[in-house]
Amino acid sequence: MRLRIFTEPQQGATYDTLLSVARATEDLGFDAFYRSDHYLKMGDVTGEPGPTDAWITLAGLARETRRIRLGTLMTAATFRLPGPLAIAVAQVDQMSGGRVDFGVGTGWFEEEHTAYGIPFPGLNERFEKLEEQLQIITGLWRAPAGETFDFEGAHYRLRESPALPKPVTADGPPVLIGGFGAKRTPRLAATYADEYNVPFHKPDDTAAAFGRVRAACEAQDRTRPMVYSAAQVVCCGRDEAEVRRRADAIGREVPELRENGLAGTPQELVDKIGRFAELGAGTLYLQVLDLSDLDHLELIATEVMAKLS
């Protein structure tokens, strides 16, 4: 089981804070550092000093880390045009030496669109745009060298694009698609994704979502492997007092975290991670909400990750 650190900088984090977490992620042996792609805080926090852009952040981290993979859960397709987004991701991939993963979704948080003047169409149109973006971005990356790329869709049109720059690998960065939808999400994942992620659901619900994607892959006669993953908020402590202290720091209740996330002693986390592994998850994203608590990461690395086979 690969463990990856997943952050929510819109809740209040500077680039320097994210750099500290990313360096700890690398030094402690975790597989990757991921961040959300949001422009507005959620819940009862100030969000100060304000949002940081996901791909600008990852560009900086690409030059200040050496081993860990870097990615998004999930880039909002509503935020950026597909051509410039393909350029940005390919450039960050080059800057990192090929360590980028590209997680992308429809976008869902209407208030952040309103706050920053970003159009927010209905769900059907967002899914249509997401699929066209997937076709365009992967098409630009995979177009043979020296050939141009054209695309004619309902929402985007490209003519004689030089399809540059190229990412490090010929197929481009791995594509992640996530969500819990019953129809469109499984089809998009089976068609375009290298990894399918279920965020913040219990194991039984996660198993059902994995099953829908497996069925979609079979329906398409897909032959290339799919990575299955889950994301869970994490709150670990050596004893109950430490668990409670960390839950208080993120404004959550311990019983609720135990039920809906990864919370408790290191052994409790090992046991629950094992349940996700039994479902076929090969990667787990640990949502770390208190970015000042680097001791939390060290505890997970030494007492949880070290015990996973």
Results as ranks from 00 to 15, higher is better:
residue 12 G to C: 13
residue 140 L to Y: 11
residue 85 L to N: 02
residue 115 A to T: 13
residue 30 F to N: 10
residue 198 V to T: 08
residue 250 I to A: 10
residue 54 A to C: 02
residue 199 P to A: 01
residue 264 G to Y: 02
residue 34 Y to D: 01
residue 68 I to E: 03
residue 6 F to Y: 15
residue 78 T to I: 15
residue 154 A to N: 04
residue 238 R to P: 01
residue 196 Y to G: 06
residue 93 D to T: 15
residue 142 R to H: 02
residue 49 P to T: 11
residue 161 S to D: 03
residue 271 D to A: 07
residue 77 A to D: 13
residue 116 Y to N: 12
residue 171 D to R: 04
residue 283 T to G: 05
residue 135 Q to R: 10
residue 245 R to V: 14
residue 235 C to I: 07
residue 181 G to N: 14
residue 140 L to K: 09
residue 97 G to S: 07
residue 81 L to Y: 15
residue 282 G to D: 11
residue 45 V to R: 06
residue 230 A to T: 15
residue 287 Q to T: 15
residue 154 A to Q: 08
residue 25 T to L: 10
residue 273 I to Q: 11
residue 119 P to R: 02
residue 288 V to Y: 02
residue 200 F to E: 07
residue 274 G to Y: 00
residue 51 P to Q: 01
residue 152 E to A: 11
residue 261 G to N: 05
residue 279 L to I: 15
residue 134 L to R: 10
residue 144 P to D: 04
residue 255 P to Q: 05
residue 248 D to V: 14
residue 189 A to C: 09
residue 294 L to K: 00
residue 15 Y to N: 10
residue 219 A to R: 04
residue 127 F to L: 07
residue 228 Y to S: 09
residue 238 R to T: 05
residue 48 E to F: 07
residue 219 A to M: 06
residue 277 A to V: 13
residue 297 L to D: 11
residue 15 Y to Q: 12
residue 133 Q to E: 14
residue 83 G to S: 10
residue 101 D to M: 01
residue 58 L to S: 08
residue 163 A to W: 04
residue 250 I to E: 15
residue 306 A to Q: 15
residue 305 M to P: 15
residue 302 T to L: 08
residue 12 G to S: 13
residue 228 Y to T: 10
residue 93 D to L: 12
